[in-house]
Design a protein around this nucleic acid. Structure first.
Lengths: 346, 346
DNA sequence: CTGAAAGCGCTTACAG
DNA sequence: CTGAAAGCGCTTACAG
């Protein structure tokens, strides 16, 4: 039937189906204007031959690579794992593939590394995760190459550059409301590093919730942190050694909340009986400790799926006439407060 | 100079350098037999034009895709993250790119999903992580397609199929020796699930160490587990409630060790003062708890780098005449015992 | 040491 | 609704 040994090509399919290769191409690309009978006949042969068009040929001829790139920095970050999971699944559903590349945010040859990937592979779109999505060098390299990008949770949105994020302010507000509704009034807060915008957003949500409930914000109960386990432990050690210690601590990420938990256990404080702890991120470790942490789940996989869609559907030239407005360009996805055992009424 | 707007092609480089495209191709592929002057001239033009050969054209003409595939199942597993990190870096160094795909180990259309990727992308090689590397359906689909594979830590080696792993038996033996050297004699062991070969290997290492030190293996101190936090907690709860409780627990992975830690804290046992705990894997959480866990670090990134090399260099037809022997095919990389604060002399 | 020709397997205009 | 031709940008034999 077909060339022996090697896999079938579009020519084999066309011959077998008694049509031209152009018609086979039309069917495979779901182009309109093919007679139903013809279409069915082609599909039958395609399946019989187990034919799949070759990406390299399609790409060379058609100018689309059917590749989406994912650029990340810290591979161990749970965030990246979830992004990748969401992206790879959505890519598969849409007939695309995901190429990943790990980059050092401050590598001297960052520009070259990006150029290499972009010029060699010509991905149809690129997903950027923090902190790369906030790196001017990365952004300019990609802009110059004309590669469409979507930023995942960037520090701040860039006019004209698509992004997907969650609402940190509201999420922090909700989890603070939860603590308040449990009767807590002396609630401590451990901040993130000042150079990350999520830090300010989460703090603002915390402050908003207190204000809405007429609870005075005691500056003594607000401690600096750096999103690390150690910084959480240190902050908690200070907070919990005070004569009037807080009844609850809201650490603005899970790693720090884990540090708070460790400090509490060190000091012999029962959690949640004597101290409630809330985190943020729903990292894997959050449910691998005792008690498991109350926290906020970011809709990361959903965000990634959305990013893939924006890239792929944004490609189509038949998009609505008007250039996408900012609401279309900067999407905000709903989060989820996960209540576990580290919080309790006081 | 070159075609305006679009990026330069090999034709532009050839014209600018005053040579044929074949010579440019030779230089780019580091083929021998090009005059040094010519080579330098070509390189100069390549850099001036910022020229990079297009993967799709190279692939279509040359039959190599410069793509390595990574198939995995559980994206949140730290193992996968490290594999990917090692693989993506080594790929970059060698001029390749990494395409990732997440597969359900028991998806009904597993075969199709693999076929789609293999036939569309034609990756030059594929890296399989557990449990996919032990899935007969995955292996046969890949074998039939003729895609070279490397198995990462498979349950058991397959004759003729390359693999990379660490030595679980020796690692477990070493960490048990460490506990013994600290004076521990009543050492409990929490097993992994029977369907994973690592479970048996780690248990064997534990038993070997005891035997070598003439310490009787008390079956009461060996508990079943399933590599989950919960199973570790339950096993520990039983072990630590006994009248003669062990002075140390070796949980055969970190998640279970974390469960032991939680149980100890629940029972008011100080770690490591009253109980030493050792884990296995050096998962991220292992250093995110207090006290941080003594454990075994698998050389996962190194294993991935090795896998990439086996794939890429194995490609070359000019490999040594003899078909690679089993030592070449099944590599074992050295691990590392990481001593932290969860273990202490008793 | 160097090059002209053919071809990889598709898609894009362009006809009809 | 369908097809013949050209071409995407490289590498592979094959010459010289």
């Amino acid at each position: 039937m077909s060339t022996r040994g090697t896999s079938p090509t579009i020519v084999d399919v066309a011959r077998e189906a008694g049509v031209s290769i152009k018609t086979v191409s039309r069917v495979l690309n779901h182009e309109p204007g093919v007679h139903e009978t013809t279409r069915e006949q082609v599909i039958k042969v395609v399946e019989a031959l187990r034919y799949r068009p070759k990406q390299s040929a399609r790409s060379l001829a058609g100018g689309r690579s059917f590749l989406i790139g994912l650029l990340y920095y810290d591979p161990s970050a749970a965030f990246v794992g979830s992004v990748q999971q969401g992206a790879t699944l959505r890519c598969r559903e849409l007939g695309y593939h995901l190429v990943v590349e790990s980059l050092h945010n401050d590598a001297p040859d960052l520009r070259q590394q990006i150029d290499r990937m972009v010029l060699a592979l010509r991905p149809d779109g690129m997903i950027l995760t923090p902190p790369l999505c906030d790196n001017p060098e990365v952004l300019s390299a990609l802009r110059e190459s004309g590669t469409p990008c979507v930023l995942m949770s960037p520090e701040r949105d860039i006019h004209g550059v698509p992004s997907v994020r969650m609402d940190d302010v509201h999420a922090a507000e909700e989890i603070t409301n939860l603590l308040i509704s449990l009767g807590h009034r002396r609630i401590a807060f451990i901040k993130g590093p000042p150079d990350q915008s999520a830090s300010a957003a989460r703090y603002q949500g915390f402050a908003n919730a207190l204000r809405a409930h007429d609870i005075e914000l005691d500056p003594e109960l607000v401690r600096p942190g750096s999103f690390t386990f150690e910084s959480g432990r240190e902050a908690a050690h200070q907070l919990l050694s005070r004569r009037q210690r807080p009844s609850a601590v809201f650490a603005s990420n899970d790693d720090m909340a884990l540090g708070v938990l460790a400090a509490a256990q060190r000091l012999g404080l029962a959690v949640p009986a004597e101290l409630s702890i809330a985190g943020f991120d729903d990292s894997p470790s959050a449910s691998l400790v005792w008690p498991p942490l109350t926290t906020v789940r970011q809709p990361v996989a959903e965000m990634a799926r959305t990013a893939v869609e924006m890239l792929i559907f944004g490609l189509k030239p038949d998009a609505s006439a008007a250039p996408a407005d900012d609401d279309e360009l900067h999407k905000v996805l709903p989060h989820e407060v996960v209540v576990r055992d580290s919080t309790r009424a006081c």
